[in-house]
């Protein structure tokens, strides 16, 4: 009897048999039943099918059209998603850039006709004093003639100015940050009263404790008579 039962087992039965020799025959028969459901009917889904796929013998010709519809829906969602994602990224990056009022304050536009030759004018720019000096030809010639080997911070006058008659420097002493006085000092440029640094008419340090030349900000001359710093 046991042999006949074991044939019905396909897998997993052998162990049950070897350990379960003493179990009753009824229990073994319960495990051995096949339960293959071969008698079940496959349900008819015709009511749910499209007309074009109801006949299984016909060649399936509408597949591309049906796929195109599905892909169109997904693609439409992707287009909307891409648009929304672009808007989000744009808004986030835009929040990190400088606002319009900050950008407006970052530049200063100066009418050069108001500054007479030989004068140095001070403006406030980004919270710092900005010196603009209309140099005379004599000053230009003097500064062009200074050998760089004699300078503490060697820079030629060409490197510091765009137009030779206009010197644009930030009026903060490179020693400890005082504001130098224009048209004074031993070299006719700027003189810092705090610790006695002398700058020449090109804003270069010539005498005193300051280590560097006066800083030249980025500036440009968009047309004759206008200067934009920043």
């Amino acid at each position: 009897m046991l042999k006949a039962v074991s044939r019905a087992y396909v897998r997993g039965g052998a162990q049950a048999l070897s350990t379960g020799l003493k179990t009753s025959g009824a229990a073994v028969n319960t495990i051995a039943s096949r339960q293959a459901h071969t008698d079940l009917q496959v349900p008819d889904f015709t009511a749910y099918r499209r007309d074009s796929v109801k006949d299984s013998r016909r060649r399936n010709e509408s597949a591309e059209e049906r796929k195109a519809f599905s892909y169109l829906l997904v693609g439409g969602g992707a287009v909307g998603g891409a648009y929304a994602a672009k808007g989000l990224v744009n808004a986030f990056l835009g929040s990190m850039s400088a606002s319009a009022d900050v950008l407006a304050m970052a530049k200063i536009e100066i009418k050069l006709a108001d500054i007479a030759e030989g004068k140095s004018v001070t403006f406030k720019w980004r919270g710092k004093p900005l010196f603009i000096r209309h140099r005379t030809q004599a000053e230009i010639d003097t500064e062009r003639g200074v050998p760089t080997s004699s300078l503490r911070d060697p820079e030629t006058d060409d490197q510091r100015v765009i137009k030779p008659q206009w010197l644009v420097v930030i009026g903060v002493c490179t020693h400890l940050g005082c504001v130098p006085i224009a048209n004074s000092g031993d070299f006719g440029g700027y003189y810092c009263p705090c610790h006695g640094s002398h700058y020449d008419a090109s804003g270069r340090i010539r005498k005193g404790p300051a280590p560097l030349n006066l800083e030249v900000p980025t500036h440009e001359f968009p047309d004759e008579g206008t200067l934009i710093v920043g």
Partner: peptide
Amino acid sequence: MKVIYNTLFKRTSTYAVAIIGATFFF
């Protein structure tokens, strides 16, 4: 529809390009 499917949607590469291109006009 068939032509659209075969030219654009069948390959992932052309599908992605179609989506990106359509986004501009959208």
